[in-house]
């Protein structure tokens, strides 16, 4: 994947396929420690213990439409390539959390890329699912929670033009602010 934000989109889509109705995405950039951590947590059906180790095997997949499963294998490879690693924590029936760590300034680390595009695709492509997004750069951070936003708009859906506009504007302004710091 050309951008880390594409890995995030991909892994979050796994959560949606796992029947989650709430997904938390965290991008933690700690430049003093030279670490970049991605966390994607869902409250979907979880991965059975015996399948967790196989999840990063590209030739293993729980799906039936094709014979390979590359999503987590790609993220794992990307993290390992950048002096980091990936962890899968899953409780059957409760959900799954994927944590991937990277050396922030590693020469092979793909850029974070278009996080706005990733979040908009997730939020608008699955409007019934609540997304919580946190992006932290050193001491500055930005948070967005679609459940709070929907409540503030009196329960209107994210596909409502005004709600969509608000989500878009907030994401753009905040990512710009964080990018200027970086």
């Amino acid at each position: 994947m050309k951008e880390l934000s594409l890995h995030i989109l991909d892994v979050a889509e796994n959560g949606i396929s796992a029947g989650a109705d709430r997904i938390r995405i965290e991008v933690l950039e700690d430049r003093r420690d030279n670490r970049l951590t991605l966390k994607i947590a869902d409250n979907g059906k979880g991965i059975p213990t015996d399948q967790i180790d196989r999840a990063i095997d590209p030739f293993y997949t729980s799906r039936t439409t094709r014979r390979v499963g590359l999503g987590l294998s790609f993220l794992d490879a990307a993290a390992v390539r950048c002096g980091g690693h990936m962890r899968i924590q899953s409780d059957l029936g409760k959900g799954t959390e994927i944590v991937a760590e990277f050396v922030h300034d590693h020469i092979d680390r793909a850029p974070l890329g278009d996080m706005i595009g990733t979040m908009i695709t997730l939020i608008m492509g699955s409007p019934t699912i609540d997304f919580e997004y946190r992006h932290q750069v050193d001491d500055d951070e930005f948070m967005l929670d679609t459940r709070e936003i929907k409540e503030s708009f009196g329960g209107r859906p994210v596909t409502d033009p005004q709600v969509f506009q608000y989500v878009m504007t907030t994401l753009r302004a905040s990512e710009k602010r964080l990018a200027e710091k970086g």
Partner: peptide
């Protein structure tokens, strides 16, 4: 369609244009 294959091939940009 947003599988790993679709995402790697550019589905996000397609979705954003659609939005």
């Amino acid at each position: 369609h947003m599988g790993t294959c679709g995402i790697a091939a550019g589905a996000r940009e397609v979705m954003n244009a659609l939005m």
